[in-house]
């Protein structure tokens, strides 16, 4: 992070962080405002029409449910279980998919042969694998991590493959004519060159994985956010269901905003490689 003030063209580098903090606070406000508006509407509509709590809970009862589940530690336990599964499945998925994607991307013949397969499995990845995963791994941790892995693996491998094959030939030639051999070509050119696509792949794959996780937890376990939702339904506890839905949504937004978007910014946008849609 040397000379970042110089790079951004700021004339007073010392005050840069103040400006950045203000800016990100403003950004957060813009992001949170619509969500707060939704809560406000909810707080007005439910008492106004005297909605049956078995159909939809009031804001207060959800807040109570949140307080209760935080106090008895159950919410943290569910969140922890879900995050652990997503984290582990994603880690295994990325670690295996990236080298494979690069190896395939290097050879045009292999890549064109495998591309249709990867597209097929990218679409299939996720909840469609739950039934067979439970047969292979039994109900529980293994089956769910497999579903997550599956959702991440194919999307990341496909995107890595795509990323490698879109690196201009002249850049590879430049590296070779500067003395780069196989390994250096891989670590200095192919990996960073494919990174924009890899990050996109991880972002898409994690999105699939998160949805798949909730679905899998409803079927194949006895702890986790999906399980929390599913069990609450049996007791007509709509306030727990809605709490679970809110937590699931918020957690994803946090993962995306605090982890994936900054990762994209730190690398790709600075390099001018981003192709935003």
């Amino acid at each position: 992070m040397i000379a970042s003030g110089q790079r951004t063209g700021s004339k007073t580098p010392g005050s840069g962080w103040v400006w950045r903090t203000m800016n990100s606070l403003a950004g957060a406000a813009v992001f949170v405002a619509p969500l707060l508006a939704l809560v406000a509407i909810w707080a007005i509509v439910v008492p106004l029409f005297e909605v049956n709590p078995r159909i939809f809970p009031s804001v207060a009862s959800v807040a109570d449910a949140a307080a209760d589940s935080i106090r008895d530690g159950s919410l943290i336990r569910h969140i922890g279980a879900s995050l652990l599964r997503v984290g582990l499945g994603t880690l295994i998925g990325v670690v295996t998919a990236v080298p494979l994607g690069i190896a395939m991307g290097v050879s045009p013949a292999v890549s064109s042969f495998l591309t249709p397969l990867f597209r097929f499995f990218s679409v299939l990845a996720g909840i469609a694998w739950i039934p067979i995963a439970t047969l292979w791994f039994g109900y529980g941790f293994g089956a769910i991590v497999f579903v997550i892995f599956n959702a991440v693996f194919f999307v990341v491998a496909y995107n890595t493959l795509l990323g490698v094959s879109t690196i201009p030939m002249t850049i590879r030639n430049a590296a070779a004519s500067l003395g780069a051999r196989r390994w250096a070509l891989l670590t200095e050119v192919l990996l960073p060159g494919a990174l924009p696509n890899i990050v996109t792949g991880v972002r898409t794959g994690l999105g699939f994985a998160w949805r798949g996780l909730i679905a899998a937890e409803m079927i194949a376990t006895n702890v986790g956010l999906g399980y929390m939702l599913f069990v609450a339904r049996d007791f007509y506890r709509t306030e727990v269901i809605v709490l679970g839905m809110i937590v699931i949504g918020l957690l994803w937004l946090l993962i995306d905003r605090l982890l994936l978007v900054p990762l994209e910014r730190a690398t790709i946008e600075r390099w001018g490689l981003v192709r935003r849609t």
């Binding site: 201009p168 002249t170 850049i171 030639n173 430049a174 590296a175 070779a176 004519s177 500067l178 003395g179 780069a180 200095e188 050119v189 960073p192 060159g193 990174l195 690398t267 390099w271 001018g272 490689l273």
Partner: peptide, 28 residues
């Protein structure tokens, strides 16, 4: 095959976008 005894300057520049100018020049 290509080798460091023959330096190449490309019409499309072919700099490494993920490396700073200093790292680009120090690559060889």
């Amino acid at each position: 095959g290509p080798g460091p005894d023959r330096g190449v300057v490309f019409q499309s520049f072919a700099l490494f976008p993920w490396k700073t100018v200093l790292e680009n020049v120090g690559f060889g």
